[in-house]
Design a protein around this nucleic acid. Sequence first.
DNA 1: ATGATAATCGAACGTTCGTTCGATGTCAAG
DNA 2: CTTGACATCGAACGAACGTTCGATTATCAT
Lengths: 189, 189
Amino acid sequence: MKTPYHETILEFFSEHRRMPSYAEIARITGLNSKSSAYHAANRLIREGWLVKDDAGKLIPGPRTSGIRLLGSIAAGFPSPAEEELADVMTLDQLLIRNPQATFLLKVTGDSMVDEGIKHGDLVLVERTTDIKPGDIVVANIDGEWTIKYFRRRGKQVYLEPANKKYRTIVPREELKIDLVVKAVIRQYR
Amino acid sequence: MKTPYHETILEFFSEHRRMPSYAEIARITGLNSKSSAYHAANRLIREGWLVKDDAGKLIPGPRTSGIRLLGSIAAGFPSPAEEELADVMTLDQLLIRNPQATFLLKVTGDSMVDEGIKHGDLVLVERTTDIKPGDIVVANIDGEWTIKYFRRRGKQVYLEPANKKYRTIVPREELKIDLVVKAVIRQYR
DNA sequence: ATGATAATCGAACGTTCGTTCGATGTCAAG
DNA sequence: CTTGACATCGAACGAACGTTCGATTATCAT
């Protein structure tokens, strides 16, 4: 067989956002019977590519479906052979708590470069009322959208950039902020 | 009802990594019959929370399951009401091409700060043989793991940090690099 | 109160599901 | 060649599936 079954099956999963039934596994793998697909799937379960949940339904196994979260670079680095107990999870699981209130925005400008947020970066933004001083927020200040630190001195709140070229912004009108930056993502390739 | 059905259902999805059957929907929502669950699901489909794929199976709909990828900050910002045609996708779909060869590493040290990669950041690393000059790579150089630019002058390859405090590294022995940084992720809350 | 509209229920249907079984085919080791 | 381990197949099973139906109950503006 050209491509091992697990690749075909997991490709189906990422395309359809669900696992195939055994009939579908047979179809996409070229097997001619459900029971062949059934046995093939059991092999993949033994190998860790798939697992069955409490209800007996197939779901992606520990070898797939997520990212292996490994140790730090300086602390050493597991070899490809010894991929072991490493935490496996989805990036979404890692970064997103409230999917419905979460957005991805592209940053324009360099007002946060000293914080490591550069022009073109993506920021993962969550709509929430729980904004604390020190948070990085996306705010509509005097009719324009900006990304800044949220600061407070006494009763006065203001927005501070992470770039000496820019000035702190003290809002003249009321300041309504409900977007907090939960993560920054920069893609290289 | 306390929580709307779609929240309950999508919570099931993120916990179990699959959509519930109608019997399961009935159970987790408190409905007493499959057909109630069936009708409820159809309402959610009408509202965009769920969709059925070609095979009639439920999958998360455009209102959920992913992140709305919106325009740039400076270019304006859609209000919560007008969440429309925005691209919806999973962070994994956005960032990961080859799941099996992809890792997440925590960066220690500040040798890439000028590139906006700070101590404690997570780097999404893919194992590949296709390394080009200019890429940011994770390399084992003389027995130690580091993250640097991959450069080439003539036949000589070397590793360059993004921090003036550090020096360019010219490997004394052979340099085997197969880990390229595909993205940087920094979490704030 | 009244009627319209929508939500829920329980029963029933044909279909598909996961699973088991026995037969057949394939291949390498003895 | 024989043996055994394993992959594949087709048929069969009951269970669970998605869906439809008609009746009952809740919701709400009139």
